[in-house]
Design a protein around this nucleic acid. Structure first.
Length: 223
DNA sequence: GCGACAG
DNA sequence: ATCTTGTCGC
């Protein structure tokens, strides 16, 4: 299989790029925050990538840019970047606002080779990024946090954060240019529901667009 | 060897 | 990630 050969190459690339990750305190208080997510378009072998920009602290969406691309690579745990980054980079080129912090749907450095999609994306944009995943990739060594909103348990490479009382927690880790403590703080600061607003709103847009594109409800001139 | 495994 | 309605519970 050619995929196997790709995985060996990608694996080496991840290990090399992960050395470029910088864990350091934020240099400015976030003014606008980006939310990043991608969705699969059934039957078309294509993906939609969305980046929303929220004003802080109002959390109002001030921009929503997106792009569509043919699926470049199958989903393989540990190699999500190579499936979703191409379409996200295309969306990124259309971004007009200045963004001080990005939240990405997926792992940051809590990854077998320390380069989940949020970390990889963080190297591309050269801005602080946080990875917020709905489930773990690397099995956590720490226990689950208490049921109350705000409870957090820390692992070696990330934290498990309870963003809503009695609701499944999220898995937070550094993407780039931020500390884990800050990543946890902003995750809670931006959460009204289970997922923080940036990724929640990006996820919502991603699904709306995916359906519009799938059923041709969208003016073709935009594609 | 077998199962698990971000989205 | 996606295919899918209602339903139970905070």
């Amino acid at each position: 299989m050619r995929i196997v050969k790709d995985l060996e190459r990608y694996s080496r690339l991840q290990k090399r790029l992960s050395q470029r990750i910088t864990i350091q305190p934020l240099k400015e208080a976030p003014q606008r925050i980006g939310g990043v997510d991608a969705a699969y378009i059934p039957d078309q072998e294509r993906m939609v990538g969305v980046i929303v920009v929220l004003d802080y602290p109002s959390l109002r969406c001030v921009e929503c840019c997106w792009a569509v691309e043919k699926v470049p690579f199958p989903y393989v745990p540990g190699f999500l970047s190579f499936r979703e980054l191409p379409v996200l980079q295309k969306a990124l080129q259309r971004l007009k606002h200045e963004v001080s912090l990005f939240m990405v749907d997926g792992q940051g450095i809590w990854h077998p080779r320390r380069l989940g999609i949020a970390a990889h994306f963080g190297l591309l944009v050269k801005k602080p990024t946080i990875g917020v995943a709905k489930s773990p990739l690397v099995p956590p060594q720490c226990s689950l946090p208490d049921k109350n909103r705000g409870s957090v348990t820390y692992d070696t490479l990330g934290a498990i954060v309870r963003t809503r009382t009695n609701v499944k927690p999220v898995y937070v880790s550094v993407g780039n240019l931020i500390t884990l403590q800050e990543a946890v703080f902003w995750t809670l600061q931006l959460s009204r529901y289970r997922l923080p607003e940036p990724t929640r709103q990006a996820d919502k847009q991603t699904k709306v667009l995916a359906k519009q594109i799938r059923y041709g409800t969208l003016s073709p001139s935009l594609l």
